[in-house]
Design a protein around this nucleic acid. Structure first.
Length: 802
DNA sequence: AGCACGCCGACT
DNA sequence: GTCGGCGTGCTC
């Protein structure tokens, strides 16, 4: 078994296979599957994952592994298998699937260097370039005006060589430690030898005579009340030594978590948890869907089920949508399970993420609470996977590998024979349909634990407001209720559903909208820099003074951004303090949390924000929730827009009156008669489900049909259309007659970065070999892709049609 | 991907 | 003769 099969870090279809390498003697014993290695690949050195150890290879001249990067495998055998499955399922490359399971810092970066091999005089230009150094970054050569040919000659002559470096992004955090170097009695002797003036040094020695263990320098200095120079003096005398020790970053280290104990469950909660506990006991895989209204105590069920799993000595993964991974959520898990919990979300620095991941790898924790990618946590004795807010679209990764965390979770649940819990107040139609069919087991929690009714929802027809002469973005009802709220000292949450809207620039005279010259999309206005930016290609230009079309100076920015609402609010309710939460105010790390804390401490009356405020927040003093534009995403070209609207409205309504104070919700809309708005206001999931299902059936959408989306992009529009047409043709020869092929159709954004984008949508009910056909297409066009800069992407079960 | 190799055409 | 610019095939 002295040969390793390696998946190399070269994301290309032609290298999407294992490569065999000889394992040098010194690595024979320690190298196991799942470790990262550095291997020669052509003239380069690259990183790769060992996926198998074998004793024979069909390949003749094997090269050897250069280095092994890990002492503990970064991928367990289960995860290697899972990687294969993900790659196959999502039609992505093996290396991409494997990389997706690891924290970013474990990715390798590559650099080239020029190494001087001779002391003899090099040509003038090279002497100048090296400037006395033994090696230089290759980039410096590229930046110089020296020709490649000249370099080639020197390389051939052996005067210069190229070195390929594989670097790691890992940054381990270290602290300075201090320890005594001599025995106790020697320290005591030294103490007597010190001069009378060296008071601080004496104190330090005294300290180590009492505590002989190494101590963090910072802590030592504080305890003894001295500075590094004193420590240094003793180090110079050979009595003490300083060294660096690695520490784990703990993003929550300075936080106290109030320990909580299990709550008494309601009847409905008990009924829901019994079958889950049975599955845990029996090591049986099953998918449970908990459909529970907001405030029905889903989280308590999760906590108690996890406790059951921990009691068995097993581990738990909890997935939460990024956006609701709020301090409140983290508190609940940290409060119950303390240091057994690792938290993984995007607000952590790369280093912190790595450390949290290592806590799992080193078995220092038993529970992971995290966003999508936490589904790959390297536990080896998994007892349960929980997906909260399972309907959230953030569980679908939008770049390669385009996996859905729910599917991965269920697959891991099968291999680990453990239960998977999906929880939501508004389950995804797909999930609910499976639950009704008995594929998943359904538990319904219809009562809130505090017995309070859901807040009353008033729908306001904004067309009538307009007719009545109200041209502001606040209806008369909302204004009145806000004023009442402020008088009583209660708080307000205002949500602006910005999806589908953005601040763009439009000419009031001719209606001209400023678009990106490289993408078919309106440029967005950025107030702070006074620039127009493209969100797709980061093209930028200053805001025009006059309309480029008609030269009118009536060119303004448009759209209802949170900034504009804030401005309007301060005009209409000057006494109200407003906290604005959107991408602009929450970009900085921790600012999200800070703003929420301020609001919780009642430092503001109104919390104004985008969707990000709809989830997971729980403020006792909030009695009014206003949705400014409920229908803004209803008209998007997305078959899930009704579902998303229903979910969002239900979610945001749950923010009001969660405690003693009764709550009101005001929903402003231009389409009050739309069923998703009407039924959300009545909290009628069942009717919505039936209604939406019949729509999906009629229009052949999930859950009745599966989808696959093939997108083709090319600089040349004709080429893009033609290729898509060819793809449709090839597919039509293979697929069954119940399968629908749509296309070529332009993508919702038909051009990005000067590339035209066309797509083909496949709607199917039963196509067991579809992946084979799609792979075949990839092979057919592989040449075209490489030679003609064609791009073909496949998205199985797409969530965004772009 | 990224590198070498080879062929071609432009330029001194 | 000297260079750089692509197109092509290969990487254990």
């Amino acid at each position: 078994m002295n040969i390793a099969r390696v998946i190399v870090d070269v994301p290309a279809s032609s290298t999407n296979q294992t490569f065999d390498y000889v394992i040098p003697e010194k690595f024979q014993e320690m190298l196991t599957v799942g470790m990262r290695v550095i291997v020669p690949f052509g003239p380069r050195k690259i990183m790769g994952f060992v996926v198998e150890r074998v004793s024979e290879s069909s390949f003749n001249k094997l090269k050897g592994i250069i280095d092994v990067l890990d002492f503990t495998p970064v991928l367990t055998e289960e995860l290697l298998e899972l990687g294969k499955w993900v790659a196959n399922e999502t039609l992505s490359l093996s290396i991409t699937a494997l990389q997706a399971m690891l924290p970013q810092v474990l990715k390798s970066t590559y650099e080239k260097e020029l190494v001087r091999m001779t002391e003899e005089q090099l040509p003038e230009v090279f002497e100048h370039l090296f400037a006395g150094r033994g090696f230089i970054p290759f980039k410096e050569f590229e930046a110089s005006s020296i020709s490649y040919y000249q370099l080639q000659k020197l390389i051939e002559a052996g005067d210069i060589s190229i070195d390929y470096l594989v670097k790691s992004r890992i940054t381990k955090k270290h602290v300075s430690m201090v320890k005594p170097t001599k025995d106790m009695h020697l320290l005591e002797e030294a103490l007597l030898d010190l001069s009378k003036n060296a008071k601080k040094q004496k104190l330090l020695l005294q300290f180590f005579i009492e505590h002989e263990n190494p101590i963090e320098q910072q802590e030592l200095l504080k305890k003894v009340g001295t500075t590094t120079s004193t420590v240094k003096a003793l180090v110079d005398r050979g009595l003490l030594a300083t060294f660096q020790q690695e520490v784990m970053r703990d993003p929550y280290e300075n936080r106290e978590f109030e320990r909580t104990t299990p709550l008494v469950l309601t009847k409905q909660q008990r009924e829901a948890i019994i079958p889950i506990n049975e599955a845990i006991e029996a090591d049986k895989h099953d998918v449970f869907l908990i459909h529970g209204v907001t405030g029905s105590g889903k989280t308590e069920i999760y906590l108690q089920a996890i406790q059951e799993v921990l009691n068995k000595g097993q581990e738990a993964i909890v997935l939460v949508p990024e956006i609701s991974l709020t301090p409140q959520m983290v508190n609940r898990f940290k409060g119950r399970f303390g240091s057994e919990v690792a938290v993984m979300h995007s607000a952590l620095s790369a280093g912190e993420k790595y450390d949290e991941w290592r806590k799992v790898q080193r078995k220092e924790v038993k529970v992971v609470v995290g966003a999508r990618s936490a589904v790959f946590a390297p536990f080896e004795n998994l007892g349960i996977i929980i997906i909260d807010e399972e309907h959230e679209t953030t569980y679908k990764q939008e770049d390669q590998p385009r996996y859905h965390a729910r599917d991965v979770a269920i697959h891991r649940g099968q291999t680990n024979s453990c239960p998977v819990i999906l929880g939501s107040a508004t389950p995804a139609l797909e999930s609910y349909a499976r639950a009704t069919k008995g594929v998943y087991r359904l538990a319904t929690l219809s009562e809130r634990t505090n017995q309070m009714d859901m807040p009353k929802v008033d729908i306001i027809d904004m067309r009538k407001e307009l007719h009545a002469g109200n041209r502001t973005m606040f209806s008369r009802d909302l204004m009145e209720k806000m004023e009442q709220c402020l008088e009583k000292g209660e708080q307000i949450v205002l949500m602006l559903n910005r999806r589908g809207y953005s601040t763009f620039i439009m000419c009031r005279d001719c209606g001209h909208v400023k678009e990106c010259p490289h993408c078919d999309i309106a440029l967005t206005y950025h107030k702070n820099s006074n620039q127009m930016k493209c969100h797709y290609c980061s093209y930028e230009e200053p805001v025009p003074v006059v309309c480029p079309e008609c030269e009118s100076d009536l060119i303004r920015y448009f759209g209802t951004g949170t900034q504009r609402v804030e401005e309007a609010l301060t005009k209409l309710l000057p006494e109200a303090e407003v906290i604005r939460m959107d991408v602009d105010t929450t970009r900085r790390k921790g600012s999200h949390e800070k703003l929420l804390k301020q609001f919780a401490e009642k430092k503001a009356d109104i919390l104004l924000g985008t969707q990000m405020i709809a989830k997971g927040l729980d403020f006792e003093n909030v009695t009014l929730v206003g949705v400014l534009t409920a229908d803004s995403m209803l008209h998007l070209p997305d078959f899930r827009s009704s579902e998303k609207t229903f979910q969002l409205l239900t979610q945001v309504s749950g923010r009001a009156g969660r405690h003693e104070l009764p709550g009101t919700v005001i929903v402003q809309t231009y389409t009050p008669e739309h069923y998703s708005i009407e039924l959300a206001s009545e909290y009628d999931f069942q009717s919505f489900y039936k209604r939406e299902m019949s729509m999906r059936k009629a229009f052949q959408y999930p859950p009745y049909y599966f989808l696959a989306l093939v997108t083709v992009s090319h600089e040349n529009q004709v080429k893009a259309v033609q290729t898509t047409q060819q793809i449709v043709q090839v597919l039509s020869q293979h697929v069954g007659n119940t399968t629908v092929l749509l296309g070529p159709t332009p993508s919702p954004i038909p051009r990005i970065k000067d590339r035209y984008r066309y797509q083909c949508m496949i709607k199917y009910r039963n196509e067991p070999d579809l992946r084979t056909y799609l792979n075949k297409i990839k092979t057919i066009f592989a040449d075209d892709v490489r030679k003609n800069d064609l791009l073909i992407t496949v998205d199985m079960q797409p969530y965004h049609m772009m």
